[in-house]
Amino acid sequence: MEQTAPDDDRLVAESLQGSQIAFQLLVERYQDRIFRLIRGYVREPAEIEDLAQETFLKTYKRLESFQHQSSFYTWIYRIAINTVLDHIKRRGRSPVQAVEDLEVLPVNPGQRLPAPAANLEREEISAITQSVLEEIPEIFRTVLILREFEELAYQDIADMLGISIGTVESRLFRARARFKEKLLQKHPEFGAEL
């Protein structure tokens, strides 16, 4: 008979009773996703590992406060995001302490942004994306990472960040506008005249 994997709630309950194996299973279940999420913010593998480690240790420490109102992965993502953003702020690499724009900035009105040229390798596009993301305020970067890299639904993003779906939508709209503006600023060669 096929054995089903224990669900997150059960593993959380067993971890709270001191089961190391249960917590190890939780870490194994989420480690790839947490590493990938952190990779959206920082590049160095050693730095990613340290931050992932810190995320899981904080998760264990706070297990008792997990309310089961959201899914475990939403909760652990939130811990990971806060851990990474704290780290970036301490390092003084946070681009701008963003206030959400009341109005979307006009994005180089005379320029369009076509899709990446076919001769650009995926790694090249990714490096450009990363360098642009590093220069936009963290509230915008976070929604872009969660939506575009993690492909999360608006509802999940809203749960993770503790905001409404409407705010997710408007923040994403502004974030994309910022991204496009910054990309065209840094790489005017990718733009096309209207």
């Binding site: 089961s19 190391q20 917590f23 990938r36 593998p45 240790l57 264990y60 990446p116």
Partner: peptide, 27 residues
């Protein structure tokens, strides 16, 4: 077109034994 610029970076490999180490340290 804009969405096609969002290319996720290559995944970072999780080191061997990471989960066991972290769970032991935590517990």
């Amino acid at each position: 077109n804009l969405k096609r610029w969002f290319a996720a970076p290559a995944a970072t490999a999780v080191p061997e034994g990471f989960a066991a180490r972290v769970a032991r340290a935590a517990v």
